[in-house]
């Protein structure tokens, strides 16, 4: 498996994602510059966290027009796996790969903390090895994470099993107190119709070794490996 990690001006989790793939999964990975026109044969694309283009205009709004994103969109349309993490989720929404938008946290605070997620769907390339209903701990670090979409879109996402993760409390309940940003229906991550594109605000690449407080992000990468090798 070869993973392409996109570096936009202002990305700051690209090296973390690369480290996760190369050092922890022992798989091949390459950094792709936003001005590149070629995915260099990558089977999977990671849109990493950060503040691409300084979050000017809106988070992710400018990144979507970069040359490499045209290739990423084409890759996704061919059924190629793409995961957008944090700013990458915002970019995926702006690029139309996923529905909805990520707005300013309702607290107006930048939230950097571990959260508990409940796995809502295992029918995606990035969660097929997870257990539905399992609780995972991962960090978040964002100011614009409030998932927002119209009611019809939310109902469709729910009906089609495309809500992938929800913010929950330690008992697994999606309470308001467990929601770090005011996301509608406590949504932390969603998938496209085919389950090949996933966007999420929490950082699985920062939850891969005990030293970092959690290894719960591993299951996403194990899912990816089994899906790509299948």
């Amino acid at each position: 498996m070869k993973v392409g990690v996109i570096t936009f001006p202002g990305s700051n989790c690209d090296e973390d994602a690369l480290f996760a793939i190369v050092e922890q999964l022992q798989e091949d990975a390459v950094l792709l510059w936003h001005k590149d026109h070629d995915l260099q044969g990558a089977d999977v694309i990671i849109l990493p966290g950060g503040f691409s283009y300084g979050d000017y205009l809106r988070s992710g709004a400018i990144a979507r027009f970069s040359p490499i994103m045209q290739e990423v969109v084409a890759h996704a349309k061919r059924g190629g796996p793409v995961i957008g993490i944090c700013n990458g989720f915002q970019i995926a929404c702006e690029a139309g790969l996923l529905p909805g938008a990520l707005l300013r946290n309702n607290s107006l605070q930048f939230r950097s903390m571990p959260v508990t997620l409940r796995v809502e769907s295992t029918d995606t390339v990035f969660t097929n090895a997870a257990t539905k209903g399992a609780l995972l701990t991962m960090p978040i670090a964002h100011g614009d994470g409030r998932y927002t979409a119209d009611e019809d879109t939310l109902d469709r996402l729910e009906a089609e099993g495309r809500v992938v993760f929800r913010y929950v409390d330690s008992l697994g309940e999606p309470t308001a107190a467990a929601n770090p940003n005011g996301a509608m229906r406590n949504i932390a991550g969603i998938a496209n119709e085919s389950g090949t594109v996933v966007g999420m605000m929490p950082h699985p690449e920062r939850a891969l070794e005990p030293l970092l407080g959690s290894t719960d992000g591993l299951v996403l990468f194990q899912s990816l490996l089994s899906a790509v090798r299948a």
């Binding site: 205009l57 809106r58 709004a61 702006e94 529905p99 909805g100 938008a101 927002t148």
Partner: peptide, 8 residues
Amino acid sequence: RLLANPVT
């Protein structure tokens, strides 16, 4: 196309 997000 760019300046306003049609969703929000």
